[in-house]
Design a protein around this nucleic acid. Structure first.
Lengths: 250, 250
DNA sequence: AAGCGTTTCCGATATAGTCGGATTCCCGCC
DNA sequence: GGCGGGAATCCGACTATATCGGAAACGCTT
């Protein structure tokens, strides 16, 4: 493919490296990207001058200009604007984590996370991107997308194993999606994070196409028996329904 | 200055344009930036392929990858991690908006905003950047920075008038900062947003240097007399003290 | 089906990104 | 307080590539 602006790509590689390392110096970034320090220095200096990076004690860090961009990206999506208060309620009602996910570029993106009073420490954070099939949220979304679209996503990103429970076979995936569609909601039994269970329901538009998903997730010890099979699904489904209605009339 | 990567600069100009327009097509961005459509098209296509932009119905939009970067930029700062729950409390106690600001590149950045039950609709959002002297928050920060640093900031960004009440003279500014320092907290009487009043207190480190500020803001009608001169300042100061203590021991 | 605006593609040119190497800076350490 | 080493800057040359007209394809609306 001719014409892609390489320098744009490199710019973001530099920024992402800083994010992963939580701040770093010139040579550290240069090593990671396998480029000369002089080149990396050019980028860091430029991005700092443009105020997208900050320099603190010899280390460069991701700056808060990205916060404004990120907030815009999120606030722009209808699911977020409508669902946020409902997700908060869901967290209050269950005491656990409640999440909102959308699909973007074939990946699941955590748009919002609310913490209930009993919520355990978790590695998820807003903006986090995960393969769709590794989360109940993602399976809910895929279950309500046309088959060819799901195929395209799998072609693009594969089915990487994250824990020993992750689905890694395409046929297994479609079987699971059929079950999810029938049931109306999706389970996740330690498929992404060990010891964590999750119940998710899709948020669909008028045509039945999933545009997002909501979930409740908590430790196995509290996610079992009646609560796991009846109580939580009931609440999650109710929440997704409320959101769908509000989406239609707005 | 030799060596700044122009393409990096242009990349972000494109992204910021999309943010300002809340999504746009090729020619619209090209017009704004006064560049050929072919050039802008190259950038948009590249950034979309890198998954930083999304294309929806012929329009490009800022993507949620920026959310991950923004969250990192925010979570990295100590003031945010420590102050967030306290700012939430402050909003609950007052029923108004409570805010957290830091200084970055000489500008005030809203890091976090909590809404009390009575809070009015407001234009502030996380990541928003404003000239420091246009907000009580910013004045609190500047009041507890060395004079030469404040001079440098003013040299860099000037004193742009935002409403008729904004401070636009350097001597006036330093007088005001002296008063703020003496009083211990700062007022903002419709200096940034018409009809809004604000009380802010600095968060300082062990050396007395401001690293952030917290505030409560609300409509004039509710921000007057005893509440404005005693009650709210009392609460804001108490909050900033709590945060300072927690910052020291962590 | 025709016409207009927009997007996309293509190719030529010169700009500017890239990189090695030299220099300076900033530490800790003797 | 000076010495050493690693990192960060600066510099200059080469050529890859960003840039931009212009042309083609697309997708509306009339």
């Amino acid at each position: 493919m001719p014409g892609p602006i390489n320098a744009a790509k490199v710019s973001f590689e530099v920024v992402e490296t800083l994010r992963e390392l939580d701040g770093a110096g010139v040579s550290e970034v240069a090593e990671r990207l396998d480029r000369p320090t002089s080149t990396v220095h050019d980028y860091l200096r430029t991005l700092e001058a443009e105020e997208y990076l900050v320099k603190e004690g010899g280390e460069y860090h991701v700056g808060t200009r990205f916060l404004q961009l990120g907030e815009q990206a999120r606030a722009r999506t209808k699911p977020f604007r409508i669902a946020r208060p409902e997700v908060d309620d869901l967290a209050d009602q269950t005491g656990e984590h409640a999440n909102l996910m959308i699909e973007e570029h074939g990946l699941g993106v955590f748009l919002y996370k609310a913490r209930g009073d009993d919520a355990v420490q978790l590695d998820t954070h807003a903006g986090m991107r995960v393969p769709l099939q590794t989360a109940a949220l993602g399976k809910s979304i895929m279950a309500h997308r046309p088959r060819e679209e799901v195929d395209a996503i799998v072609d693009r990103h594969g089915l990487p194993p994250v824990t020993e429970n992750t689905i890694t076979d395409r046929d297994d995936l479609f079987e699971e999606l059929d079950a999810v569609r029938e049931r109306g909601y999706a389970y996740d039994d330690a498929e992404r994070v060990k010891g964590m269970r999750c119940v998710a329901a899709p948020i669909t538009d008028d045509d039945g196409r999933a545009i997002a998903a909501v979930s409740v997730s908590g430790p196995e010890s509290r996610m079992r028996e009646h609560r796991f099979t009846e109580e939580i699904p009931e609440l999650v489904l109710r929440t997704s329904n409320v959101i769908e209605v509000n989406l239609t009339y707005s």
